[in-house]
């Protein structure tokens, strides 16, 4: 099992969550406690055990290729924080 220290700043950036320095400190302490507890899974021998992704296993759940009505444009945009010319506006994307 991995080490229980965690680079909160890095992981918070991956998750795109801004943290204040104070939040970072508290978060580190709490996560260290939780990760320490989670270490107990290391006690178990899971050799040869299949992982469970779904408790009720099924396969090939598919839909037919049929067109259904979309939302009206106004409804689609109704919750947009910023919009113009039918587009959702965002700060300039710099590649």
């Amino acid at each position: 099992m991995a080490a229980t220290d965690i680079d909160v700043k890095y992981v918070a950036h991956l998750a795109r969550i801004g943290l204040t320095p104070d939040e970072e400190v508290k978060m580190s302490a709490h996560l260290a406690g939780i990760l320490g507890y989670i270490e107990k899974l290391k006690e178990l021998d899971v050799t040869g055990v299949e992982p469970t992704a779904h408790a009720v296993p099924m396969v090939n759940v598919l839909r037919p290729d049929v067109v259904r009505p979309s939302l009206a444009h106004e409804a689609a945009m109704s919750n947009a924080p910023a919009k113009a010319n039918g587009l959702f506006l965002v700060p300039k994307i710099v590649e």
Partner: peptide
């Protein structure tokens, strides 16, 4: 680097 140690292992324990 942590997927196998945490997520995959947890899914196996979930089976148990």
């Amino acid at each position: 680097g942590y997927y196998d140690a945490y997520y995959l292992r947890a899914q196996k324990v979930r089976t148990l």
